[in-house]
């Protein structure tokens, strides 16, 4: 029967082993794979400013990006491709709450400059390699 000491070795040994594997894989991810898959060389100053605007207004409190955030408003990973620059800018610069089908967004009334930065951010996100996310709708279910 397992003794308390053996159980302790299982806990400490296992934790150490799996932590090391995790750290090793994480190192590969952050130094090699992520920069490549996200086109890190294309992160311009405008993209960074756009990310600041995204974060400082807690856009993730309603929307999702890369599938992360809240589930109250649309997923925006591919919004640049889906809606285009003009539509995005109109929403961001609107002085009145944007409310498609009645669900209201906060009226941010961004300046044209800020709106351009957010568009640049979306444009960069749009090009990421996300292992197939978001999924394409099933063809069998199309009318």
């Amino acid at each position: 029967m397992l003794s308390k000491k053996q159980a302790k070795v299982f806990f400490l040994g296992g934790t150490l082993l799996f932590s090391l594997i995790f750290l090793g894989l994480s190192y590969e991810s952050i130094t090699a794979s992520i920069p490549k898959k996200t086109n890190a060389d294309q992160i311009s100053d405008a993209v960074i400013r756009g990310k600041h605007i995204w974060d400082s207004n807690n856009c993730m409190g309603c929307h999702t990006l890369l599938g992360e955030g809240a589930y109250y408003a649309p997923e925006l990973t591919k919004v640049y491709e889906r809606k285009g620059e003009t539509y995005i800018k109109t929403v961001l610069m609107s002085e009145k709450p944007w409310a498609p089908r009645g669900r209201q967004m906060v009226a941010y009334g961004l300046s044209e400059e800020d709106a351009n930065d957010v568009v640049e951010f979306f444009k960069w996100v749009n090009e990421m390699d996300l292992n197939g996310f978001p999924p394409k709708p099933s063809e069998a279910l199309q009318p």
Binding site: L2, K4, A7, K8, F10, F11, G14, T15, F18, S19, I21, F22, S29, S33, I34, K37, T38, L66, G67, E68, M128, D129, L130, N131, G132, F133
Partner: peptide, 24 residues
């Protein structure tokens, strides 16, 4: 000990389930 051992055995690398579709 056994239970917290199992937690870390699965949970540390289980972080991977957040790394499916975010540019990883």
């Amino acid at each position: 000990y056994v239970i917290v051992g199992l937690t870390f055995l699965s949970g540390i690398l289980g972080t991977g389930h957040h790394y499916y579709y975010i540019g990883t």
